[in-house]
Computed example of a mutant assay.
Amino acid sequence: MQKTTLVPYAHLPRAHHDRHVLTSTVDLFGAAHWLLAERAPQPGGDVLPFDAQVVSVHPGGDIEVTELSAVGARWPRLDRLPDGGFVVAASRARRFEDASQVQVFDALGRETSSFSVGDAIEHLLVDEAGHVWVGHFDENPVGIRRWDARGRLAWTSDGARIPGLFDCYALNVSGSAAWACPYTDFPLVEIRPDRPDKPVTVWANRVRGADAVAVHGNRVAFYGGYGKERNRLAHGELTDTCAEPTGVGLLALPDGPASGRRRVVSRGSRIYIQAEPFTAWSVFDLST
């Protein structure tokens, strides 16, 4: 079985290693971001809100630090807006309809708005227009939604005829489009809300349990799976109706398989992977 090794991509500067990594992501433009706090969250014992810090490493290597005031998310999701601001969201809504679940901060770290998107956030990714895409896991099976940065619902998968959409296992946002691979049927789904004639396209797919997907032209790659397929990298080619398998291999970190906890972010042709202690990102690029 062919093994593909991830390429090192971005590292949290060592000067910030004394802080706790709450979460981390890679944005649409390739910048890596770490949301840091002075200490790890204590279940049931935290005093909220708290001040936090975002350390950003841009593709050219430039480092930027943004101080955020009064963050209210104990288990947050993070992404950057095109205007330089940030979105921070609590993955679990404390009262299921928490008006401060999602906080929007400007480029100076000041909160400008807040809203709710519903409990059980699996993925939160911002597109080129500043829309916030949210994929939910099965404790709140509302599917996939797109919101604007002021909290207005801009698109929903309700009525979109996506087979077996119960848990958004994989979500890829690039440009103004999104790709998803949801449980239970695991179809590959392309979502283009700005294409009124056909906003959703669905391909049947035999790869089960992938938690990341990359797309380049008519080629697709699925990463992850159940049990021993945790580090699987399955390649396919898009036909008119299905993602036809073309090969299966393994995807490994530069220093070996990702055996512990990890984060994944899908952006276009790229899958970014981060393993504990969550200070470094590596990348697989389907286009290369």
Rank of each mutant, 00 (worst) to 15 (best):
M1V: 14
Q2D: 11
T5S: 10
Y9R: 03
H11N: 14
P13W: 04
P13N: 00
D18P: 07
R19I: 00
R19S: 09
R19Y: 08
H20Y: 14
T25E: 05
V26D: 07
V26N: 08
D27C: 12
G30S: 11
G30L: 02
A32F: 01
L36G: 02
L36C: 01
A37F: 07
A40M: 06
G44Q: 07
G45A: 14
P49H: 13
P49A: 15
A52V: 11
Q53I: 09
V55F: 05
S56R: 12
T66W: 02
L68W: 03
S69Y: 11
S69I: 05
V71K: 04
A73S: 15
L78E: 01
R80D: 00
R80N: 04
D83S: 12
D83I: 08
V88H: 00
S91M: 13
S100C: 13
Q101R: 08
Q101K: 02
Q103V: 14
Q103E: 10
Q103A: 12
Q103H: 03
A107C: 06
L108F: 02
G118E: 03
G118D: 07
H123Y: 10
H123V: 03
D127G: 11
D127V: 00
A129M: 11
A129Y: 11
G130L: 03
W133E: 03
G135N: 03
E139G: 14
P141S: 15
V142N: 13
G143T: 05
T156S: 15
T156C: 05
S157A: 13
A160I: 09
R161G: 01
I162L: 01
D167R: 10
C168P: 02
Y169G: 03
A170P: 04
L171T: 05
V173N: 07
V173R: 05
S174I: 14
G175T: 14
S176T: 15
A177F: 07
P182L: 01
P182E: 02
T184V: 10
T184W: 08
L188F: 12
I191V: 15
K198N: 12
P199H: 07
V200T: 08
T201M: 00
T201W: 06
V202Y: 05
A204L: 10
R206D: 14
D211H: 09
A214Y: 02
G217V: 05
G217T: 07
A221P: 01
A221K: 00
F222G: 01
G224A: 10
G225F: 06
K228W: 08
K228H: 12
G236V: 05
P245F: 08
P245A: 08
T246N: 02
V248A: 10
D255L: 04
P257Y: 06
S259H: 10
V264R: 03
V264A: 12
V265M: 11
V265S: 06
V265F: 06
R267E: 09
G268T: 04
Y272A: 04
P277W: 11
F284A: 01
L286R: 12
